[in-house]
C-alpha cells in the first residue's frame, strides 16, 4: 500500500526525493479519509514556503482539508492535471495524484519523515 520509495509525514503527506527537488502528495490514508476530491487549490510555481506551512487546500464534496509542505523551499511545479481531474488524488494518490514539486532548502527537513514501515505503524497505532 505505501511504497518504500516514499517518505511520509505525520500530516499524511508523502515525499519523493528527486535530486534537490521533492515531489509532494497526500497519502492513500488521507485521500480515503477525505473522500472523493472535487477541487484542489495549489500554489503557483515561484512561491516559497517554510516547512509545515499550509500551501493549499483539497476539497471533497463534504469536507475541506489543508495540506502542508513537509519541507521548506520554492514551488517549481504544480500538478496542472488536477484542475480538470482532481479525482487523480483518489485514483492514484502516490503517483499521478501528486500535488507539487518543491526545491527544498534544508536537508534536515527530510530527517523527520518516516519510511513506509514507520508510517504504517503510525497509522496502526491510531496516529
Amino acid at each position: 500500500m505505501y511504497p518504500d520509495t516514499l517518505r511520509y509525514s505525520k500530516d499524511h503527506e508523502w515525499v519523493r526525493i528527486e535530486g534537490d527537488v521533492c515531489v509532494i502528495g497526500i497519502t492513500h490514508y488521507a485521500q480515503d479519509e477525505l473522500g472523493e476530491v472535487v477541487f484542489v487549490e495549489i500554489p503557483e510555481p515561484g512561491q516559497e514556503f517554510d516547512a509545515h506551512e499550509e500551501i493549499g487546500t483539497i476539497e471533497s464534496v463534504k469536507a475541506v482539508a489543508e495540506f502542508f509542505t513537509p519541507v521548506a523551499g520554492e514551488i517549481v511545479e504544480a500538478n496542472e492535471a488536477l484542475a480538470d481531474s482532481p479525482e487523480l488524488i483518489n485514483r492514484d494518490p502516490h503517483g499521478e495524484g501528486w500535488l507539487v514539486k518543491v526545491r527544498f532548502s534544508a536537508q534536515s527537513d527530510l530527517d523527520g519523515l518516516m519510511d513506509s514501515a514507520a508510517y504504517e505503524k503510525f497509522l496502526e497505532d491510531g496516529e
Binding site: 473522500g35 472523493e36 472535487v38 471533497s60 464534496v61 463534504k62
Partner: peptide
C-alpha cells in the same frame, strides 16, 4: 453511514 462507495457515485 456517511457514505458507502462514495458520495458522488451514490448521489
Amino acid at each position: 453511514p456517511v457514505q458507502y462507495s462514495g458520495v458522488l457515485q451514490e448521489h
